[in-house]
Nucleic acid binder design. Structure first.
Length: 117
DNA sequence: CTGCTGACTGGTA
DNA sequence: GTACCAGCCAGCA
């Protein structure tokens, strides 16, 4: 357990991917939430970098959006991101997701909370 | 190893 | 709601 210090970066990346994979369809999470769930609430900046490279396949990186329900980016295929989110039942506006607070998936809140439904 | 960039966030004006 | 500044972390040249 002492060498963890050397694997944090690698672990963090894997952790982020694991969290993103846990995001259920029809739900979305912000970079901050994913980073916090990964163990680095201040690493949302890195989360974006990880999403961009997407080292692992089968990762719904399109479910990861910016704060305030903004889409953020999708490597130049932002249009695709909107389509994917809308395909999952999300209401995506011109600049941000509709009813974002309700669609927001909170991995850290799942301790004792209950979602809206 | 050093420096810049980026799929970002929060606070203040 | 919009605009500007400062902070944080990982990837690439």
């Amino acid at each position: 357990m002492t060498k963890r210090l050397h694997k944090v970066e690698s672990d963090f990346t894997a952790r982020v991917i694991a969290v993103v994979r846990r995001i259920p369809p029809g739900r979305v999470a912000t970079y901050g939430d994913v980073a916090a769930a990964a163990g680095r609430p201040r690493a949302w900046r890195a989360v974006g970098t990880i999403m961009r490279t997407c080292p692992a396949g089968g990762v719904p990186c399109h479910r990861v959006i910016a704060a305030a329900g903004r889409l953020g980016g999708y490597g130049g295929n932002l249009e695709l991101k909107r389509a994917l989110l809308r395909a999952e039942g999300l209401l995506v506006g011109a600049q941000r997701v509709r009813d974002f607070p309700a669609r927001r998936w909170a991995p850290a809140l799942r301790a004792k909370s209950r979602n809206t439904g």
